[in-house]
Each structure stands twice: as structure tokens, then as C-alpha cells.
């Protein structure tokens, strides 16, 4: 147990070092001269050299990396050029919006995707399987930004079923103070139900679209895991003791499928954070993705790299969490 914990900690540390190495490297090869950005092109050679030394660009690379690493570990990503606030401050402000979006999307993906995968497996080769397979193939092939636009056109502009871009109507802005940063939860906590419903109808479309993409992946993986479980001897044994096929599939076989699904769901959540970059652009959703996109176009490298590190850290965290959840669903992992 201790050995495994040590190994997983080591792998986390290595991954983090690798991540910061890459972001550091990206920061160095950027074509824009960071010194020039500070001093302006009218500055004298001396000023240029002084500023260059000040921000440490004259030091050897490993030393520069070490400096960068210690800063990152202290949560210091520098200041954003656009907002001129510390990048970390900005990130913490926009992240809850993305989290809200990704969590609802994940919920949709798992709640719909797992049963679909199970049904596809138990009806292998029949029309249910074909329909589900086709639906998940569509999800795999759909450009998310395009799907978002079509969704806005259809469900917002033409049908009026949902609210449009943004998190809230302007009229509802600033009614609820941020607690968790997730507007739906904050409005519920404050008892502002009108705000909640407005926020919910804003959230539903982007979350459904992201949720559909994760559904495609979850359903497909569930199907293949389920098929493997249905071939196991214990399935025959549970049938032989007189259980209904329903119970055999949804309790026994699915109980074993969860063991493998934990990792899949963690991966899905990670990919949802990525999908958020494009979705948030389409839906003007003020989250991490939109922040990254805006920083990209203003050459705000500190902000871009800070966001990259944050997403990377969330990835690493997800891996750790799935390691922790694993023993809960698999008794075999508890003893190892």
C-alpha cells in the first residue's frame, strides 16, 4: 500500500515537472521578445540589457527553469497583460464557470451514456446496438463548435427553448454574490430561484452539447467493457441460481464494469475541460476556455501558460482521484 502510494506520488511529481518543462519551453521559444514588450522599441541598449537581466533572461536555462518552477509552485504565474492582475487571480475567477459547465456535461454523459452502453451490449448486433453505435459515432465526428452554433440557431433563435449565450441575462447580473462561483449553485444557496432558472436555461444547451460528446465516449467504452463481462463465468452462475437477466446485467455485470469506468470517467472529465475552450467561445461563456482564447489573441503568454498549467494540474488531480476511487468499487484493489 505504502509502496503504491509512493510510486503514484513519484509519477505525479514527474508529470508535473514534465508539464512545467513544456510550458517553460513554450515560453522561451515564443517569437515575441518579452523584453521588448516591457521596454518598448525606443529604449536604449542599456535599458534593454538591464531589464533583460532583471527578468533573468541572461541566466543559463536550467537556472531560469528552476526560478520558473519555484514561482509556479508558489502559484505565481506572473501578471496578465490584459487584466494586469495576477494570472492566478484571474484563473480562480473564471475556473468555476468552466467547472459548472463540465460537471453538468459529465453528469449528462454518464447518466445517459452508461445505460446506452449497457443496452448496446445486451442487444449486440440488433437495432438498439446499431442505433447507439451510430449515435456515438456521430458524437465522435461532430466538430463541437459547429454543433454549438447549430444548437444556438435551432434551440435558441428559432425555437426559443433555451437562453442564448452568456451565463445570465443582463437583468440578473450581480444579484447573487459568488460563493462557489457556480451561478446555479450560488443562486440556490441564496434562495434566488428566478436567477437559478435563468442560469439553468443558459447552461443547459452548452452542457448538453459537451455532454453529448462525452456520452459518445462513455457509451462506447461501457459497451465494450460490458461485452467482456457478459462472457464471464459468473454471469452463467448468477443466471443458474435463478436471477433475472435484468439483475444479472445491471447489478452483477455492471458492478464489474464500474471498476473500469472510473478511469474512463476521469479521462472524460479531462477532455470536457478541453472541449470547453471551443464551446465557451461559441457560447460566450466566461470560463477558462474563453479566457485562454482571449489571452491567445492578445499575446498574453503568462495567462496562456498559467491556464495550461492549471488544466494540466487538474488532469493530474483527476488521475489521483481515480486512483483513490478505485478501491471503493473494486474489492481486489483494497487488499493490494
Amino acid at each position: 500500500m505504502a509502496n503504491r502510494a509512493a510510486r503514484s506520488l513519484l509519477s505525479v511529481a514527474l508529470t508535473f515537472l514534465g508539464l512545467t518543462c513544456v510550458t517553460f519551453f513554450i515560453g522561451r521559444v515564443i517569437p515575441i521578445d518579452p523584453v521588448l514588450a516591457i521596454v518598448g522599441d525606443k529604449a536604449s541598449a542599456e535599458t534593454y540589457a538591464r531589464v533583460r537581466a532583471e527578468i533573468g533572461l541572461d541566466l543559463p536555462l536550467p537556472v531560469q527553469y528552476w526560478r520558473y518552477l519555484t514561482k509556479v509552485l508558489h502559484g505565481d504565474f506572473g501578471n496578465s497583460v490584459i487584466t494586469s492582475r495576477p494570472v492566478l487571480h484571474d484563473l480562480l475567477q473564471v475556473f468555476p464557470a468552466t467547472l459548472e459547465l463540465a460537471l453538468l456535461a459529465l453528469l449528462i454523459g454518464v447518466v445517459a451514456g452508461v445505460p446506452m452502453g449497457v443496452i448496446a451490449a445486451t442487444h449486440r448486433g440488433r437495432w438498439q446496438d446499431q442505433v447507439i453505435r451510430f449515435l456515438s459515432l456521430l458524437g465522435y465526428s461532430m466538430p463541437v463548435f459547429w454543433l454549438g452554433l447549430i444548437g444556438l440557431l435551432l434551440f435558441y433563435a428559432k425555437l426559443g427553448w433555451v437562453e442564448g449565450p452568456g451565463r445570465l441575462d443582463v437583468a440578473f447580473d450581480d444579484i447573487v454574490g459568488p460563493v462557489t462561483g457556480m451561478v446555479t449553485i450560488d443562486s440556490l444557496l441564496a434562495g434566488e430561484y428566478e436567477v437559478f432558472w435563468n442560469a439553468f436555461w443558459h447552461l443547459l444547451l452548452p452542457a448538453s452539447i459537451l455532454g453529448y460528446l462525452s456520452l459518445a465516449y462513455v457509451a462506447r467504452m461501457t459497451r465494450s467493457f460490458m461485452l467482456a463481462q457478459l462472457r464471464q463465468e459468473y454471469v452463467l452462475a448468477t443466471l443458474a441460481k435463478g436471477l433475472s437477466p435484468w439483475r444479472v446485467v445491471w447489478v452483477h455485470a455492471l458492478g464489474n464494469v464500474w471498476v473500469q469506468l472510473v478511469t474512463v470517467i476521469a479521462l472524460t472529465f479531462g477532455s470536457l475541460l478541453e472541449g470547453a475552450v471551443l464551446t465557451e467561445t461559441v457560447f460566450a461563456w466566461p470560463g477558462l476556455g474563453l479566457y485562454m482564447k482571449n489571452s491567445l489573441f492578445n499575446a498574453d503568454l503568462n495567462a496562456v501558460l498559467g491556464a495550461t498549467v492549471l488544466v494540466g494540474v487538474v488532469y493530474i488531480g483527476l488521475n489521483m482521484i481515480s486512483d483513490l476511487i478505485y478501491p471503493l468499487v473494486d474489492p481486489r484493489a483494497r487488499d493490494q
Binding site: 513544456v22 515560453g27 517569437p31 475541460l273 478541453e274 485562454m292 495550461t308 488544466v311 493530474i316
Partner: peptide, 24 residues
């Protein structure tokens, strides 16, 4: 394989964005 694992653990699109931003 350690190096590969590190790259596997990265968010792909976000990293591609960062690269694209850096390279222009």
C-alpha cells in the same frame, strides 16, 4: 516510456493551443 506518459497525461487541445500560440 516516462517521457511518453508525461505527454499522455497532458490536455491535448490546450497544449496544442499553447504551442500554436507560441509558434504563431
Amino acid at each position: 516510456m516516462r517521457i511518453t506518459d508525461i505527454f499522455l497525461a497532458f490536455p491535448r487541445l490546450v497544449l496544442a493551443l499553447a504551442f500554436a500560440a507560441a509558434l504563431g
